[in-house]
Design a protein around this nucleic acid. Structure first.
Lengths: 335, 335
DNA sequence: CTGAAAGCGCTTACAG
DNA sequence: CTGAAAGCGCTTACAG
């Protein structure tokens, strides 16, 4: 494999000139640059990664801590991972993947061995075991998700509170007075999972603010459980005319199927809104109004915030991505 | 951050002794080793990754090429990624994730910059654009999936042909004479996707061998399409008494729900078998007999085969993981 | 059982 | 606009 010396020899210059030409860190004569470019192309030269890490101040590697719980919703998770890996490439970074328990121990290992320049933490829970660790790590870190204590941390996430409020606001404006909320399986809430809890609590607060009645159910991902949940909503909210879904895609499908079986037309008999969904709701039958969980935006922003810190800008910030409402015709005014 | 010089000084030895003590590549006196261990612990020393890559022959980094298509089934994909990242850790390797088009260009980049010691290719299609590339790469590579031409390549995968044959064999032995096969969406087959095609073709061959009638449908992931597919099976196979599902979890759920609506009891009226599934079928209602797609085993084996090559053993092999049949009571003999 | 030293392939002050 | 050289922190023959 060609080294920088081979390139220098072929171009008739010194290795420092080659290095500077490649990094662009100082001006190079046009003729010189052309000869270097030609030599690089002809030899298929690519700088040795290890040498670069050792001599330079950057490794061009980013650690992505992506622990997977049994209840992790794979499609959303994958979208985040994708967005982060792609965004990293735009900064000429590659992504080292840390999973499971390695998501914690691996971080310490990567930092002390100087393998990575920065870290992105995915799926941060309110009381996340990685938070105390990264607080003492002297390296750029961005959290995707908002922990309970954000002191000194850079975080980014969808504004779940605003999303919950927006859900209630829209439906209340249509005249709905009793709105059901179908959440994730109970286990998630018990574990202190970030998104669902914030959404649930903000939803309740917004309902109080707008003076609408609500009830909250947490079905498992199976038809029987979803049916029981629907029945509970109808029982607790006799005037139920709208349902907000803050749950996985299979539960969406099941709920829509059950409503169909009950002969409830959407949106004539029931308004349905999907909130903070990471999948396309226009594949559903019928397509649902949605406040998307913008995994691509949020994940990408996580990388950008890390790169900002690498660039020297290191004021901790908590960035909340504002929610958007996309209408598909699955909600309607009460008649 | 402490360097090997700090450790050597603290332990009163040379840096080479520290290096050898840590790598275990030569015998060290007990007292010396104790002093080194103490110094390492006290200083929190961890070898610099870049220096190690440059001086040594290993980077301890593995590239995972995991392109994601629009139709990639996230949960299965994630299980593979997990299995590979975890298995890599057991060999003291970390995993660099390559996605999308980077799955191809990134490979070349990592190899020529000597960033990684080996490569695992995930989700290899029959006619995969990465295959010609890795063939000319002078680095250990293992393919998870079997391309059309395996010359010179090390591959591992579930034995889909055997899995298809096993499906037919079990149902034929129960007396079923007409067996429907529900596959993935048509697009996957058009794209030359690996698993589904191999399963479909082997299923047809096995049906011929056992003298049973079959029909093959490829519904989209939505209730209406699945209903149409079921109706097509009943129309084409008037004596339909068994269905094999080689499709995603949502389609499983939909098919079971539709059978329930039709009043068909499982297994009394219809035997149902899930083939090459990457999710737990005992969560379904009813739990289904399954021939699992052992993503954990296959993914892990992909890493092991790469490590074998790194260790010097480099005979290309195509390893097929034999299928297993797990009964859950969803099939029964024809009465 | 241990050490002195070369060398891995870069980056970056220092110098002109 | 360009070059000579130090140095990043390891590993590994070479030597004893």
């Amino acid at each position: 494999m060609a080294t920088i010396h081979d390139v220098a020899r072929a171009a008739g210059v010194s290795i420092s000139t080659v290095s500077y030409a490649l990094s662009g860190k100082r001006a190079i004569g046009a003729a010189t640059r052309d000869r270097i470019d030609a030599a690089v192309a002809q030899l298929g030269y690519r700088p040795n990664a290890g040498a670069r890490m050792l001599a330079g101040s950057r490794t061009n590697l980013l650690a992505l801590s992506a622990p997977l719980h049994a209840d992790t919703y794979a499609p959303a998770h994958m979208t985040f991972v994708l967005a982060i890996a792609e965004a990293a490439r735009e900064f000429d970074y590659d992504t080292v993947l840390l999973v499971q328990d390695e998501a914690v121990n691996g971080l310490r290992r990567m930092v002390s061995s100087k393998l990575v320049d920065g870290i992105v933490l995915l799926d941060v829970d309110r009381d996340d075991s990685r938070v105390p660790l990264v607080r003492e790590l002297d390296i750029p870190v961005t959290l995707v998700g908002i922990p309970a204590d954000t002191t000194g941390l850079t975080c980014v996430d969808l504004d779940f509170e605003a999303a919950a409020r927006l859900s209630v606001e829209r439906l209340a404006a249509q005249g709905h007075r009793q709105i059901g909320l179908i959440g994730h399986p109970e286990e998630l809430y018990a574990r202190g999972s970030n998104f669902p809890i914030r959404f649930r609590d903000a939803f309740a607060a917004a309902a109080a603010e707008f003076g609408v009645g609500t009830h909250f159910v947490m079905p498992e991902q199976e038809p029987v459980s979803v049916r029981v949940a629907l029945e509970e909503l109808r029982r607790e909210l006799p005037g139920l005319s709208a349902i907000v879904l803050n749950c996985n895609e299979p539960v969406h499908t099941m709920a829509l199927e059950l409503l169909r079986q009950d002969g409830a037309s959407i949106p004539q008999d029931m308004s349905v809104l999907s909130a903070c969904s990471s999948f396309p709701t226009d594949q559903l039958d019928p397509p649902l109004d949605v406040i998307p969980l913008p995994a691509l935006i949020t994940g990408r922003r996580g990388v950008e915030l890390t790169m900002n810190q690498l660039g020297g800008y290191s004021e901790p910030v908590v960035e909340l991505v504002p929610p958007a409402y996309i209408a598909k015709g699955s909600t309607a005014s009460v008649t």
